[in-house]
Design a protein around this nucleic acid. Sequence first.
DNA 1: CCAAAAGTGTTAAAACTACACCCATGA
DNA 2: TCATGGGTGTAGTTTTAACACTTTTGG
Lengths: 229, 229
Amino acid sequence: MAHSYQFARPALTVDIVVFALDDEDLQVMLIQRDLAPFEGAWALPGGFVRVTETLDEAAARELVEETGLRDIYLEQLYTFGAVDRDPRERVVTVAYYALVNLAGHDVQASTDARRAAWFAVSDLPPLAFDHRQILDTALARLRAKVRYQPIGFELLPERFTLRQLQHLYEIILGRELDKRNFRKKVLGMEFIKETDEIETDVAHRAARLFRFDKKAYDRATRRGFDFEI
Amino acid sequence: MAHSYQFARPALTVDIVVFALDDEDLQVMLIQRDLAPFEGAWALPGGFVRVTETLDEAAARELVEETGLRDIYLEQLYTFGAVDRDPRERVVTVAYYALVNLAGHDVQASTDARRAAWFAVSDLPPLAFDHRQILDTALARLRAKVRYQPIGFELLPERFTLRQLQHLYEIILGRELDKRNFRKKVLGMEFIKETDEIETDVAHRAARLFRFDKKAYDRATRRGFDFEI
DNA sequence: CCAAAAGTGTTAAAACTACACCCATGA
DNA sequence: TCATGGGTGTAGTTTTAACACTTTTGG
């Protein structure tokens, strides 16, 4: 590695694919651009990385600034470096994806969030730059990872019913699951703890609420347990 | 995303963790640094990304320049952005990992490769920068990915024995596998094709050679087949 | 009393694990 | 003829997949 940079430097940004779940669909948060290029088009939240912050910090900061979301699950996805992905100049972007429980966070909390909106991943508008490719990569990662890491819980409230959990997997994986087999598998995981609460305000028998116990999960993992749905 | 960069830019590099297999160990290629900082220390091959090349191109170029290796399996790993990972200035690095078949490539083909050497991952020297962390991340990724993607073949010659293949998994996964069960599973994969050749120059019964048929693998994948060891 | 979802077991098929001997070859 | 690794089958166990009815609750 040479000591100093004899060439021009690419600019460096972060972009974040924020996923949430409603009753019907997996959703993604997009921001409507107010500047050229792609003025008026929808884009992923993101922005330039400062020299004084890590990549994770840049992603978390942009998320707060552009969407008002803070303290949510955030994981680096992939770094996109096509030479012409930004028409103005060379920009390399480190993409992240985030998972948020819609019920627990107020997206309108930020003034900069006025142009933010949720879209179903099955019905997306055209996106600026290569953001469609980034989003597709994030979706593929989420679909693969949700099966062998307990990240799905990030999309649910802290207390959830088994029906909600099953529904989450059905939406993300895109196929139906057998209710009895699903419950058998999940109830066999000792880190999915039954609480003494039940649903309220439902027009039918109320379901038991469960919670994900991270410490118990870590203990099981150390014993060699492999999460899998 | 603002239009132009009102802040100083981090420098951007690529670093590559090159894995190979010998009879005993998984090995990694390191380069001895001839400049400060960390002069004389061992480091991953890598260097600055030019504004005219993609990240993949930068990684492939640095690999040829520093090790002489070309046309080998190369995959983006993770991007490391700790603020002080380089003592000189802010440098973000996009790490890659590569897999190479030792028998098929001549590492000494490059003049710049004089300071390159292979080290067993179980017996590494101290590394420059955060390269130990990068290497550990690559190792974790390789161990996880080799189980559900057919990338192990990249570490073997084009024609290989089932013993070599089993040995590869035993070294990477760090545990012994049952010979009969392993052969049963592998021979059941239609994209692992028996050839009409056998080993030569062995002091015992010669084993049949097999090859990995990528097209047949892609066909199986499209039918929903899931590779797993 | 009706509509809606909660909750619950069994069986057959498939996959996985453990395990030991004879065979072919070259030195 | 010996040392070395090549090559092969079975049985017990575990895991997975398919499948339907009764209970609870609120409206």
